[in-house]
Simulated scan of single mutants.
Amino acid sequence: MIRVLVVDDQEVVARAHRTFVDRVPGFTTVSIARDGAAALERIRRGGVDLVLLDLTMPGMSGLDVCRTLQTYPEPPDVIMVTAARDLESVRTAVRHGVVHYLIKPFTFAALRGKLDVYASYRAAAAGQRDVTDQGEIDAALAALRGSSEASLPKGMSRETLSAVRSALIAAPEGLTALQAADVVGTSRVTARRYLEHLVAGGGCEREPVYGRAGRPELRYRLRPAT
């Protein structure tokens, strides 16, 4: 479970962000901090993997928090959230170790896409598992670098692909297209398209499931590490 600290000086916004985070499988909000000093104090106590950090706050700004975190031996990662839209703010945030940048207001789908990719990147970087395919590495690095999604086939989104990967990771026994669709919240046809994309990239394998009359159903699962 990836432990998240939500930092925002507006109580309503902070609670909304907490609700978003807690809806994403594999993530949980451990606390809310209303200013930079409180955020640093909570981080010093340990048990924080990722900070969802507001840029503009009274007193200590989000960038000030990031500068201080760079002096810590094992600082958590940071996703900056802000209404600031100037590129200089983005560049400054990246220079201070921010792994991603979200413009307020953002949707649950936008945040989930970033968190899903972050989870895949974190797991691979920590050696907890092999990445599913080259596309997963590209997706993770693209998200962290702010690259485009041009490498995906037309009509496919990075967020949905990440959600399908997460569903497969959570189901080592494998999923049918219908089961994947139920988990991700899309149609069976769409889920199958993404699953077949992962098969083509070597990230997962498919096998027929017999037992019912008629055409066998296909089950998809992550390809085992070799």
Results as ranks from 00 to 15, higher is better:
residue 51 V to D: 03
residue 29 T to V: 15
residue 36 G to M: 07
residue 76 P to A: 12
residue 205 E to W: 02
residue 156 M to H: 13
residue 198 L to V: 09
residue 18 R to M: 13
residue 192 R to V: 00
residue 182 D to S: 06
residue 3 R to K: 14
residue 168 L to V: 10
residue 109 A to D: 10
residue 167 A to S: 12
residue 204 C to D: 00
residue 205 E to G: 04
residue 226 T to W: 10
residue 123 A to L: 14
residue 30 V to L: 11
residue 166 S to P: 00
residue 173 E to M: 06
residue 1 M to A: 11
residue 188 R to N: 12
residue 131 V to K: 11
residue 16 A to N: 13
residue 58 P to K: 02
residue 21 V to N: 02
residue 183 V to K: 12
residue 63 L to N: 14
residue 20 F to T: 05
residue 201 G to A: 12
residue 16 A to L: 11
residue 177 A to N: 04
residue 48 V to P: 09
residue 105 P to I: 08
residue 79 I to F: 13
residue 82 T to H: 09
residue 11 E to I: 13
residue 136 E to T: 07
residue 135 G to S: 06
residue 32 I to K: 10
residue 196 E to W: 00
residue 40 L to C: 02
residue 14 A to R: 07
residue 194 Y to K: 01
residue 40 L to G: 07
residue 69 L to H: 02
residue 204 C to P: 00
residue 13 V to L: 13
residue 27 F to P: 01
residue 140 A to E: 10
residue 188 R to Q: 08
residue 189 V to E: 09
residue 103 I to T: 14
residue 35 D to V: 08
residue 111 L to N: 07
residue 67 R to I: 15
residue 118 Y to C: 01
residue 159 E to R: 09
residue 215 R to V: 15
residue 71 T to Y: 07
residue 220 Y to R: 03
residue 105 P to M: 05
residue 124 A to S: 14
